[in-house]
Design a protein around this nucleic acid. Structure first.
Lengths: 195, 195
DNA sequence: GTCTATAGAAAGATAGAC
DNA sequence: GTCTATCTTTCTATAGAC
């Protein structure tokens, strides 16, 4: 398996994506240059174009990967039957997953406006799929008389905003443990739906 | 009141700020050039520098104005005594105010990372002042035995995130009226604090 | 697969005429 | 107060050597 000197295709690709996620999250897509990403990886700017046709595609691929991973991870969770249990699972899953991917989450919320229209629409569709997962739980709960919600669509948006907000303030070294944070958010969510 | 041809200081300043708010909200600070702002106002790029020393200061001034207006507007609201009433007033005020200033709100949340450290700290302090207004209400409510919240700081962040999220989906032409949206959010908030 | 070098466009900011 | 013109830097993306 001899390989030419300086040939690192299997590791450079992932490293470019990791560096781009971190830098885009920290400074914003428009504020980060291809040179900065290359420098973080340890290659020259031109080498990036072996892995992405352009900067816009790099952003889009990162956002799509984030959303697809999120959907896959939720679908892989064991699914309990009762709406109240499913709502609890969703809350805890959402908090855990997003705290584990702060940079990817940040980009997926902040950089939508930097996507070209076609790419914007594709990411929007993935996001709506995820929101639909929560709304289905809420609708089932209302149908079974467990939740009291006059508008499940509004409540879906309200709850996702509340839960995702954990990323703006939570620090691993802070006062509250993850488990405690999960528990308190879940208590608020449970009460907010009238359960 | 004769005035030299092409002299419009009283109106150009505000128009620059309005155009900058709109463009920064739409495309992001880093993605908007001074030339674009100038074009939106109908002047040449160089003329902008009569009104701001540089682009960073323009962003900072917009964000500071947004936060100071927000704080002033809340302080100008009549203050009822009971924590439950004050919480309702805060919720309705927050939703109304932010729906009236979608662009300014967007910038104040999204462009923090584009502020230089000193400016970042100043905007952060204003934001913490606003959060403290809500947390005081929650603490008073807990102290009087009206609310059940194990951590008022966490709940403050959770509620503000939930309420501000209205900006991401609400459309004036949509299914729900502002009054209806206010009411449903308030119902969820009321129940979430255990009142 | 990565490098150096660079083409070509666009950015922030300033100088001086009017 | 605004414009034209421009300085200087930086950007994305590509070409060709190794």
């Amino acid at each position: 398996m001899a390989r030419k000197t300086g040939s690192h295709s299997e590791i450079t690709g992932p490293r470019i994506r990791e560096a781009a996620v971190r830098l885009f999250a920290r400074h914003g897509y428009a504020a980060v240059s291809m040179r900065q990403i290359a420098a973080a990886v340890g290659v020259q700017a031109g080498a990036l174009y072996l892995y992405t046709p352009d900067k816009q595609t790099l952003l889009f691929d990162l956002m799509r990967a984030h959303m697809e991973d999120l959907l896959r991870a939720w679908q892989a969770e064991p699914m309990r039957r009762a709406p109240l249990h499913r709502l609890e699972d969703f809350c805890r899953f959402h908090i855990r997953y997003h705290l584990d991917r702060t940079d990817g989450t940040f980009i997926s919320y902040m950089e939508l406006r930097n996507l070209e229209p076609k790419n914007f629409e594709m990411i929007g569709a993935l996001r709506r799929d995820y929101e639909a997962a929560l709304e289905t739980i809420l609708r089932d709960g209302v149908a079974e008389g467990r939740f009291t919600l006059p508008d499940t669509k509004l409540s879906t948006m309200a709850l996702i905003a509340m839960l995702t907000g954990v990323n703006t303030w939570f620090r691993e070294s802070g006062r509250l443990s993850r488990e405690r944070v999960e528990q308190i958010y879940w208590d608020m969510v449970r009460r907010s739906v009238g359960a």
